[in-house]
Protein backbone atom coordinates (compact mmCIF):
# COMPACT_ATOMS: atom_id res chain seq x y z
CA UNK A 1 0.00 0.00 0.00
CA UNK A 2 1.04 3.59 -0.66
CA UNK A 3 -0.26 6.26 1.72
CA UNK A 4 -0.05 9.98 1.22
CA UNK A 5 -1.10 13.01 3.23
CA UNK A 6 -0.80 16.76 3.62
CA UNK A 7 -0.32 18.49 6.95
CA UNK A 8 -0.94 22.20 6.86
CA UNK A 9 -1.19 25.05 9.33
CA UNK A 10 0.76 28.09 10.35
CA UNK A 11 4.29 28.28 11.71
CA UNK A 12 4.32 27.45 15.41
CA UNK A 13 1.58 24.79 15.21
CA UNK A 14 4.16 22.04 14.95
CA UNK A 15 3.36 21.01 11.39
CA UNK A 16 6.89 19.84 10.63
CA UNK A 17 7.22 18.01 13.93
CA UNK A 18 3.95 16.19 13.21
CA UNK A 19 5.30 15.30 9.78
CA UNK A 20 8.53 14.02 11.25
CA UNK A 21 6.68 12.00 13.86
CA UNK A 22 4.42 10.28 11.32
CA UNK A 23 7.48 9.62 9.16
CA UNK A 24 9.42 8.03 11.99
CA UNK A 25 6.28 6.06 12.95
CA UNK A 26 6.12 4.66 9.43
CA UNK A 27 9.84 3.87 9.52
CA UNK A 28 9.27 1.95 12.75
CA UNK A 29 6.77 -0.16 10.83
CA UNK A 30 9.39 -0.90 8.21
CA UNK A 31 8.03 1.42 5.54
CA UNK A 32 9.80 3.67 3.08
CA UNK A 33 9.03 7.34 3.63
CA UNK A 34 9.34 10.61 1.69
CA UNK A 35 8.80 13.75 3.71
CA UNK A 36 8.71 16.98 1.77
CA UNK A 37 8.38 20.25 3.68
CA UNK A 38 7.23 23.16 1.59
CA UNK A 39 9.78 25.83 1.90
CA UNK A 40 8.57 29.40 1.67
CA UNK A 41 10.53 32.63 1.63
CA UNK A 42 9.00 33.24 5.03
CA UNK A 43 10.80 30.56 7.00
CA UNK A 44 9.62 32.30 10.16
CA UNK A 45 5.92 32.42 10.99
CA UNK A 46 3.74 32.33 7.90
CA UNK A 47 2.34 29.17 6.40
CA UNK A 48 3.76 25.72 7.13
CA UNK A 49 2.98 22.69 5.04
CA UNK A 50 4.40 19.28 4.35
CA UNK A 51 3.65 16.25 2.24
CA UNK A 52 4.32 12.72 3.46
CA UNK A 53 4.27 9.55 1.39
CA UNK A 54 4.93 6.12 2.85
CA UNK A 55 4.78 2.71 1.36
CA UNK A 56 5.98 -0.87 1.66
CA UNK A 57 7.51 -0.44 -1.78
CA UNK A 58 8.76 2.63 -3.61
CA UNK A 59 7.39 5.93 -2.39
CA UNK A 60 7.36 7.33 -5.93
CA UNK A 61 6.53 11.01 -6.18
CA UNK A 62 7.31 13.14 -3.14
CA UNK A 63 4.91 15.66 -4.67
CA UNK A 64 1.23 14.89 -4.36
CA UNK A 65 -1.62 16.68 -6.16
CA UNK A 66 -4.66 15.08 -4.59
CA UNK A 67 -3.82 13.46 -1.25
CA UNK A 68 -5.94 10.74 0.31
CA UNK A 69 -5.74 12.49 3.68
CA UNK A 70 -5.25 16.08 4.80
CA UNK A 71 -4.63 17.25 8.34
CA UNK A 72 -5.83 20.83 8.43
CA UNK A 73 -4.88 22.97 11.37
CA UNK A 74 -6.06 26.48 10.47
CA UNK A 75 -8.57 28.38 8.33
CA UNK A 76 -6.18 29.28 5.53
CA UNK A 77 -5.19 25.63 5.08
CA UNK A 78 -8.85 24.67 5.01
CA UNK A 79 -9.47 27.07 2.18
CA UNK A 80 -6.38 25.99 0.29
CA UNK A 81 -6.26 22.22 0.74
CA UNK A 82 -9.56 20.70 1.93
CA UNK A 83 -11.03 20.47 -1.55
CA UNK A 84 -7.85 18.84 -2.86
CA UNK A 85 -8.49 15.68 -0.83
CA UNK A 86 -9.28 12.76 -3.12
CA UNK A 87 -12.79 11.32 -3.30
CA UNK A 88 -13.08 8.61 -0.69
CA UNK A 89 -10.37 10.36 1.33
CA UNK A 90 -10.38 11.85 4.79
CA UNK A 91 -10.12 15.42 5.98
CA UNK A 92 -9.00 15.80 9.60
CA UNK A 93 -9.84 19.33 10.66
CA UNK A 94 -8.86 21.32 13.73
CA UNK A 95 -12.37 22.56 14.46
CA UNK A 96 -11.06 24.81 17.27
CA UNK A 97 -9.75 27.21 14.62
CA UNK A 98 -11.56 26.33 11.41
CA UNK A 99 -15.00 27.45 10.36
CA UNK A 100 -16.14 24.76 7.93
CA UNK A 101 -19.40 26.29 6.81
CA UNK A 102 -18.28 27.74 3.51
CA UNK A 103 -17.25 24.52 1.87
CA UNK A 104 -19.17 21.32 1.15
CA UNK A 105 -16.99 18.25 0.84
CA UNK A 106 -18.89 15.36 -0.59
CA UNK A 107 -17.57 11.83 -0.98
CA UNK A 108 -14.91 12.60 1.59
CA UNK A 109 -15.06 11.89 5.28
CA UNK A 110 -14.85 15.05 7.34
CA UNK A 111 -13.62 14.57 10.89
CA UNK A 112 -13.92 17.74 12.95
CA UNK A 113 -11.73 17.56 16.03
CA UNK A 114 -11.25 20.46 18.45
CA UNK A 115 -7.49 19.95 18.60
CA UNK A 116 -6.67 23.17 20.42
CA UNK A 117 -9.32 22.46 23.03
CA UNK A 118 -8.24 18.88 23.56
CA UNK A 119 -4.59 19.84 23.97
CA UNK A 120 -5.44 22.74 26.29
CA UNK A 121 -7.41 20.29 28.43
CA UNK A 122 -4.30 18.10 28.54
CA UNK A 123 -2.27 21.05 29.78
CA UNK A 124 -0.50 22.52 26.73
CA UNK A 125 -1.90 23.82 23.49
CA UNK A 126 1.41 23.04 21.76
CA UNK A 127 0.44 19.35 21.79
CA UNK A 128 -2.31 19.94 19.23
CA UNK A 129 -0.04 18.40 16.59
CA UNK A 130 0.16 15.21 18.67
CA UNK A 131 -3.62 15.08 18.90
CA UNK A 132 -3.68 15.41 15.11
CA UNK A 133 -1.21 12.54 14.68
CA UNK A 134 -3.21 10.26 16.98
CA UNK A 135 -6.35 11.16 15.07
CA UNK A 136 -4.59 10.23 11.83
CA UNK A 137 -3.75 6.75 13.13
CA UNK A 138 -7.30 6.03 14.20
CA UNK A 139 -8.93 7.56 11.14
CA UNK A 140 -6.82 5.72 8.58
CA UNK A 141 -5.49 2.61 10.27
CA UNK A 142 -2.32 3.29 8.29
CA UNK A 143 -0.11 3.42 11.37
CA UNK A 144 -0.43 2.10 14.91
CA UNK A 145 -0.49 4.76 17.65
CA UNK A 146 2.09 2.65 19.47
CA UNK A 147 4.51 3.18 16.59
CA UNK A 148 4.16 6.92 16.99
CA UNK A 149 4.85 6.71 20.69
CA UNK A 150 7.98 4.73 19.92
CA UNK A 151 8.89 7.31 17.30
CA UNK A 152 8.67 10.22 19.75
CA UNK A 153 12.22 9.34 20.77
CA UNK A 154 13.41 10.01 17.23
CA UNK A 155 11.24 12.97 16.38
CA UNK A 156 11.83 14.97 19.56
CA UNK A 157 15.26 16.38 20.38
CA UNK A 158 16.87 14.73 23.38
CA UNK A 159 16.26 17.75 25.63
CA UNK A 160 12.50 17.29 25.15
CA UNK A 161 12.36 13.58 25.91
CA UNK A 162 10.84 14.33 29.30
CA UNK A 163 7.74 15.42 27.38
CA UNK A 164 7.22 11.94 25.88
CA UNK A 165 4.61 10.78 28.42
CA UNK A 166 2.50 13.92 27.94
CA UNK A 167 2.79 13.68 24.17
CA UNK A 168 1.80 10.00 24.29
CA UNK A 169 -1.34 11.01 26.14
CA UNK A 170 -2.11 13.59 23.49
CA UNK A 171 -1.74 10.93 20.79
CA UNK A 172 -4.21 8.74 22.69
CA UNK A 173 -6.60 11.68 22.99
CA UNK A 174 -6.53 12.08 19.21
CA UNK A 175 -7.29 8.39 18.79
CA UNK A 176 -10.19 8.64 21.23
CA UNK A 177 -11.60 11.75 19.56
CA UNK A 178 -11.89 9.98 16.20
CA UNK A 179 -13.37 6.79 17.57
CA UNK A 180 -15.90 8.90 19.51
CA UNK A 181 -16.80 10.85 16.35
CA UNK A 182 -17.25 7.72 14.29
CA UNK A 183 -19.49 6.15 16.93
CA UNK A 184 -21.95 9.01 16.75
Amino acid sequence: MRYDLFISGYGGQGVLLAGNLLSYGAIHEGKNVSFFPSYGVEKRGGAAMCTIVFSDGDTGSPVVGLPSVAIILNQLSWEKYASRVKQGGICLVNSSLVNMEDLVLDERELLAIPMNQISIDLGDVRMLNMVACGAYCEATGALAPESLKEALKNALPERNHRLIPANSKAIDAGVAAVSQLRKT
Binding site: V33, S34, F36, P37
Partner: peptide, 9 residues
Protein backbone atom coordinates in the same frame (compact mmCIF):
# COMPACT_ATOMS: atom_id res chain seq x y z
CA UNK B 1 15.68 22.17 -3.83
CA UNK B 2 13.13 19.32 -3.59
CA UNK B 3 15.91 16.74 -3.30
CA UNK B 4 17.94 18.96 -0.99
CA UNK B 5 15.11 19.63 1.43
CA UNK B 6 13.16 16.37 1.43
CA UNK B 7 13.80 13.66 3.97
CA UNK B 8 13.94 9.95 3.26
CA UNK B 9 15.46 7.02 5.03
Amino acid sequence: SVLGQMKES
